[in-house]
Design a binder for these strands. Sequence first.
DNA 1: GGAGAAAATGGGAGCGCTCCCAGGATGCGC
DNA 2: GCGCATCCTGGGAGCGCTCCCATTTTCTCC
Lengths: 348, 348
Amino acid sequence: MKVARVGPRPGEDGRPTLEDVAASAGVSRSTASRALNDDGYVSARSREKVQAAARELGYSPNQAARSLVTKRTGAVAVVLSEPEARLLDDPYRTAVMRAGYRELADVGCQMVLIFSDTREDLDRTVRFLDGGHVDGVLVFAPHRTDPLPKALRQLRIPVVYGGQAAGLKRGVHVVDFDNEGGAKLAVAHLVEAGHRRIATIAGPQDQSAAIDRLSGWRKTLLDAGLDPADLMEEGDFTLTGGAKAMANLLARRPDLDAVFVASDMMALGALRTLHSAGRRIPSDVAVVSFDDNATLAPEMDPPLTSVHQDPREQVHAMVETLLAVMDDRDLKPRQRILPVSLTHRASS
Amino acid sequence: MKVARVGPRPGEDGRPTLEDVAASAGVSRSTASRALNDDGYVSARSREKVQAAARELGYSPNQAARSLVTKRTGAVAVVLSEPEARLLDDPYRTAVMRAGYRELADVGCQMVLIFSDTREDLDRTVRFLDGGHVDGVLVFAPHRTDPLPKALRQLRIPVVYGGQAAGLKRGVHVVDFDNEGGAKLAVAHLVEAGHRRIATIAGPQDQSAAIDRLSGWRKTLLDAGLDPADLMEEGDFTLTGGAKAMANLLARRPDLDAVFVASDMMALGALRTLHSAGRRIPSDVAVVSFDDNATLAPEMDPPLTSVHQDPREQVHAMVETLLAVMDDRDLKPRQRILPVSLTHRASS
DNA sequence: GGAGAAAATGGGAGCGCTCCCAGGATGCGC
DNA sequence: GCGCATCCTGGGAGCGCTCCCATTTTCTCC
């Protein structure tokens, strides 16, 4: 059974227009518009009549018509560019998506999520972003060889990067964390605790974040007069990668007494290896990781000491920057580096 | 330095319109439109001129204008409704997001992701969906008490549910997996392998999927003449939930010889507990789980036997249904139940 | 009470596109 | 040569909205 339709004619497809609302309220289209968007002069009486009519008719403005004239869509794209598909399971990415949704919603924008991992994705992504569907873009493209950032330079809408943009240092807006500083914090903490053979499981060295964390580790060791030789193993930010890297480290340097792991996920793998190897944590080997993911770090066995970086904070800063750029297209590029802190738990 | 702008005037903001392209190609707006959308009659010569002009000017059509007249936005919303925020880290959800993106891209649609977990999200979500931003909606609202599905009934655009829609049995399109059948498969496999005290870690019983899996377990035990008493523990689909549930089970029934876990994530927790308790898998306790998540099940120690359900397949069917409904608004509601299979690995 | 400001209103234009339709060019058969 | 189908083209209308502007109504103050 179809719902009976009465009252002012509601266009073929059942969607009332502003005109319908105006007619039903007995005012002009202009007044109705002003009443609903409350700007300009509208008498209290008109406003109420219009709002009542809108409610009764189930009116909702046609976004296409609106953005045709305002040249704003109210949508912002969040692009996650990750050449290796499986890595999208990275919990930090998940956190970023949710934070993006929330932060954008808070400023009245809708998030349009875009995954980009194959070559043809690149073209489609650029075409979409340039097609006027969105007002701005937040991009996460951690890999240094990723061609996306270069391709995005042709865009006619504002772009803000989360983490360094591959290949482009200048001319882009970036909000990053202090990766090197965080690593230093973590390793200094281990040094102070008396550890002397502090290994690291680094992230893939095609990502600046991973590079910076590694260099923070190295510098801190050298500053403390410790030797980093043979104490580094590269992982791929996955659980199994972390487990393997840990195994390699143990094989090479069975005497290690602490390890700084460049991500929580890899730390999860490293813990597994350490457990199997019968090492006690933190008494035999202290572990400190990076990310301090809310659903990971505190839940581990033992709970992880981890360098805290809040995705929400990053996205918040990105949105802030994006709005500033939308407001002033010629804003000079901002490079914001957010501070990180160390969350102490039982693993160290 | 700004790029020099020559040639046909490109509107204030630098975006050429169809009119600009037409002028530059020396044809009319209509012909340009036909050439670019290739429909109707256009001479090869005009088409080429138009395409060249479009390329040269960097033309991309104004989506707002287009959808104002076509009444299509080319966007589809994917709604993830999860009252408890942290559960959104569920790897199945992540897989759904990616699958949604891919499947929608394949049919030329853009995905607009919507998270809905608080009360005010509900209103905002409904308002957005009803605002003409998208052509259709794919909804994942697993919780039976979720008010969202009821609220969505007022929508004037097609809706397809992934998994049962809370509270509404009739009148909606649903694509679900055979949860009960999958559980039966898993438990029958354990029975055949000779296990007699087969426990289960169920999912939260406010979700139909969890209920169905539990009932599959129970029925199979009864059919085999086995007693389910004391062998059920409810988890919450998280790692720690699974770990705790397993501990409870072991405490109550130290003699159990197998366990059917309602999700991979909980199985991860259960494995941890079993390891700590010194039980060998599968010789002491066989484990079978549900989801067969590509980045989880095969990576565990030992790799998990798991009921395979492919999120991509589900989303594919959902998109298929959505397109069918968009084509024929009065299509009678479809309830599709997708089959599942059992992937055998070392844990059983 | 009347001038002037302030408040409120309605009509028109136009955003950039697609679709419809009238009409011009071109082809073919007799 | 003419008639008719086929191909191609351009102009006009209009999608639903916002914004500008001209006009009317109301308020304020001397």
